[in-house]
Design a protein around this nucleic acid. Structure first.
Lengths: 114, 114
DNA sequence: GAATTCCGTTTCGGAGCCGGATCAGTCTAC
DNA sequence: GTAGACTGATCCGGCTCCGAAACGGAATTC
């Protein structure tokens, strides 16, 4: 793999610019980090676990789940075996959102990594 | 270039997670977009031009320049030929910041695009 | 040289997010 | 069964950012 510094920044620039312009579901870096973690890493995902992994406070995770839940990008589910836990789960809308993000990345990558 | 959707998202995940954890100069997506534009696209860069390119309001650009100026990532310079204009210019600290970002991207890319 | 246009900034009220402390509910040890 | 540990949610004061509108200064038009 041969990715030069300038190419890496240009790729980042193109993708960030694209997401800023069509800011539709405007996610903060933290929210995006949560979304990607839930979709890419093996479950289960708890509030505490996510807070630890991202090194942020628990309320930050709870609030992010609130806002992303409203946008239907994620959903909560109470753990039946231990009702203290909340399991964070995927949704169809979340999958679509990330699918579009990967499309953007791949499209922009083609321009720089040809 | 052969970048699969899952690899693209994993790359994004790793880099975003890295920037969230060491949130030192915590830049919003917009601020990062401004920074990358100024450093990657040919000058001159004006407030109005940046607002148009990112499709955001002028005050948003002004405020972003304020905060990033405090962090010394960018600097303003009055245009001598037309004193209405403000030219946005690079700084050493900004170059260092983006250099570290590209290092992170390249490092994470190696894991997925080997 | 007065009126108009253009530029970046500031003001304004409002919305979102922040972390520490605290809370109610659940599970575990004894 | 009761005391303690643990989970996620909520409260709190504070900070950042938002866009529309209004502003002052500079350039242009006539």
């Amino acid at each position: 793999m041969d990715l030069k510094p300038l190419d890496a920044l240009k790729l980042w620039h193109d993708v960030v610019l694209d997401t800023v312009r069509r800011d539709v579901p405007d996610l903060s870096a933290r929210q995006l980090a949560i979304l990607l973690t839930v979709y890419l890493e093996p479950p289960p995902h708890t509030v505490r676990g996510l807070a630890s992994k991202l090194d942020v406070s628990k309320p930050a995770i709870t609030r992010a789940l609130d806002t992303m839940g409203q946008k239907d990008l994620l959903k909560r589910k109470r753990d039946d075996t231990d009702k203290r836990n909340v399991l964070v789960q995927r949704t169809v809308a979340g999958s679509v959102y990330l699918s579009e993000l990967s499309d953007t990345i791949i499209s922009k990558a083609k321009d720089h990594l040809a």
